[in-house]
């Protein structure tokens, strides 16, 4: 494992911890898209079914369990927690995420490394992860004001994607048989979706002002 991959995993983990901290400390999920969280839970469940078939390392297995458990916990809190669910911005979170699921499933059936159950699910999870942030970005755009923790959450998620791209570039040059064009193309699309957010994040950071997205 190279340093970029490790930093990518760590920023991903930090983003989830920030989200859990926000929900736990403020007992509020305002500004957070339940649809994006549901998509992530689906992404992890579909991709990490290989927990039962392929063993890579203890690190990989532990991280997979952490990602599945935390994403389910977040969805559960937003839907069922007596206090937290009241702060959910339901009227702003109207992105039709089922279309994303259907489109990604169709794409995975057409484009995958091998037409097996696990490979189709794996490709599906990669495609879905690439676009899963869309409902969250739309929600932030609509609400305009972004609270600190929500801003940090999206920032670290974007940083995770950026580190993974560096990781692929590194692997491309250091490993003889590295070709993961499905992950790489999807990863580039996913990171590009953050470009706009990053732009406004850095502006607010530079001006030391509150993060605001244009309507």
């Amino acid at each position: 494992m190279n340093i970029f991959r490790f930093l990518g995993d760590m920023t991903h983990l930090i983003s989830i911890l920030i989200l859990l901290l926000k929900i736990y400390a403020t007992k509020s999920c305002s500004g957070i898209s339940l649809k994006t969280q549901e998509l992530y839970a689906l992404v992890f469940l579909a991709r990490y079914l290989d927990l039962f078939t392929d063993f890579i390392s203890v690190y990989n297995s532990v991280m997979k369990v952490v990602f599945i458990a935390s994403s389910l916990a977040i969805v559960w809190c937003m839907r069922r927690h007596r206090v937290v669910r009241r702060s959910y911005d339901k009227e702003l979170d109207t992105f039709r995420h089922y279309f994303l699921v259907a489109a990604c499933l169709a794409l995975a059936l057409l484009v995958q490394e091998k037409f097996t159950f696990l490979e189709v699910l794996w490709a599906f999870s990669i495609y879905l992860e690439a676009v899963a942030i869309l409902p969250q970005l739309v929600l932030l755009q609509r609400s305009g004001n972004v609270d600190n923790l929500t801003g940090q959450y999206v920032f670290f998620l974007g940083a995770y994607r950026a580190f993974y791209i560096l990781n692929w570039i590194y692997r491309y040059f250091t490993e003889t048989h590295f070709s993961r064009w499905i992950s790489c193309v999807s990863g580039l699309v996913q990171t590009a979706l953050y470009a706009d957010f990053f732009y406004y994040y850095f502006i607010s950071w530079k001006n030391n002002s509150k993060l605001q997205l244009p309507a």
């Binding site: 290989d50 392929d54 890579i56 696990l118 490979e119 794996w122």
Partner: peptide
């Protein structure tokens, strides 16, 4: 080389 079906990234 890496076998198809083994995904070592998260």
């Amino acid at each position: 080389g890496e076998a198809v079906g083994v995904h070592d990234e998260l």
